[in-house]
Amino acid sequence: MSTTETIKMASEEVSEKRTIPFYKPIHREVEVFEHAYKNKIPILLKGPTGTGKTRFVDFMAHQFNQSLITVSCHEETSSTDLIGRYIIKGAETIWVDGPLTKAVKEGAILYLDEIAEARPDVVVAIHSLTDHRKELYIDKLGITVKAHPDFMLVASFNPGYQKGFKEIKPSTRQRFVAVSFQYPNAKDETEIVVNETGLDQDAAKKLVNIANKIRNLTELGLTETVSTRLLVDAALLINSGLPKRLSVKVAIVEPLTDDLEITQALTDLCDLMI
């Protein structure tokens, strides 16, 4: 199976018949997306891991009743993976569209998650889709495809992750309108955990308090801090019957670090707060 086929099978999501995703608007990101979509301006979502960027895109695709194709970018993601390639099928060599070409032709929302992780040629490939041209050049076919009127490009990245190592060039950033995502305030985050998991209000509030306490411990030097996603995982484990302390340890503490001393310190802190 080719890399393109693997990406398509693993990362495509079609809006038809999917459950309405819960999303709690924090600022005015819904309004910004609506106007960006109306004007077909690409949008860049910036923020730490687990702050709701992917859920937000899923929510907006549902609001517009649009197909959503998501590609989780990594260091091996190339323009060929996104645009397409020739494959051998039986005695024939046939062309297979990649997720980018498919979205451009069908008018789907294409979401490039963690675009900064992809190879530089990916950014080059989307340049003509992020300005007035709104077209995709497929060099292997020697053709240019005009984007469907409903096509929308959305990308995300984490500015704090590997800062200075993998950044988006200013010339690329200025082709997007940008929205920053941060962790919600305690009240909103508690509401999100309750709605996502069904955990009772008091228990959800304790999880949020733990998260905020750890987020403020900047002296620990953690690469990533507690995301809302980790809180949801912990709440699901608690709701299914796993003891609270153990749920917090395996869902919140252990994913943050491999340092034994920091792990023990965070475990003791969480035990006290629970």
Rank of each mutant, 00 (worst) to 15 (best):
Y111Q: 04
R85G: 09
F22K: 09
I238R: 00
V32E: 09
A147P: 06
T257S: 05
S67L: 02
D268V: 07
N158K: 08
D139E: 15
T70V: 15
D188P: 10
D139M: 10
K46W: 04
V226K: 02
E117S: 15
I274D: 08
F64M: 12
V145G: 04
L68N: 06
I69Q: 03
L220G: 00
Q63C: 12
H74P: 04
Y111L: 13
K187M: 11
K134G: 11
L44T: 04
N185E: 13
D58T: 13
M9K: 14
A125W: 03
Q63T: 11
R18W: 08
P21N: 06
D188W: 07
G160M: 05
S11Y: 13
T93S: 14
R229Q: 08
W95Q: 10
E135I: 06
A251S: 03
A118V: 07
S2L: 04
L260M: 10
F165I: 12
S2N: 11
V248G: 00
F176G: 10
K134L: 12
E224D: 13
L136N: 01
H74W: 06
P255E: 03
I88V: 15
I252Q: 02
V122Q: 02
E224W: 07
I43Y: 02
G221M: 11
Y183R: 07
T144S: 11
Y37R: 13
N195L: 14
P184H: 08
E167K: 11
I26A: 07
E117N: 15
D113P: 01
V123C: 12
T223P: 06
A235Y: 00
K163L: 07
H132L: 09
V14R: 10
D81P: 03
K105W: 10
I109Q: 03
S128L: 08
S11R: 04
V154D: 05
E224Q: 14
V177P: 04
L199A: 12
I41R: 14
K140G: 11
I252R: 01
I109N: 03
T77M: 02
I168H: 02
L246G: 01
S11A: 08
V14Q: 05
L136H: 02
L82C: 02
T144I: 12
R18M: 14
I83N: 00
V226W: 01
I126D: 07
L136Y: 00
L220M: 06
L242T: 15
R173K: 13
Q201C: 12
D268H: 01
Q182W: 09
A125I: 11
F151S: 01
L44H: 02
K17S: 10
Q201R: 15
L112V: 07
I262L: 10
T197I: 13
I109K: 03
N209P: 11
I126T: 09
H35L: 15
Q174E: 14
L100S: 02
L246A: 10
V253M: 01
H148K: 08
S171Y: 08
P99I: 05
I274F: 14
K146W: 00
L44G: 06
D188A: 15
T267Y: 02
K24M: 14
T49R: 08
P159A: 07
Y111D: 04
E34Q: 13
D113L: 03
K38L: 14
Q201V: 13
V250N: 01
E219I: 14
H132P: 03
K163S: 11
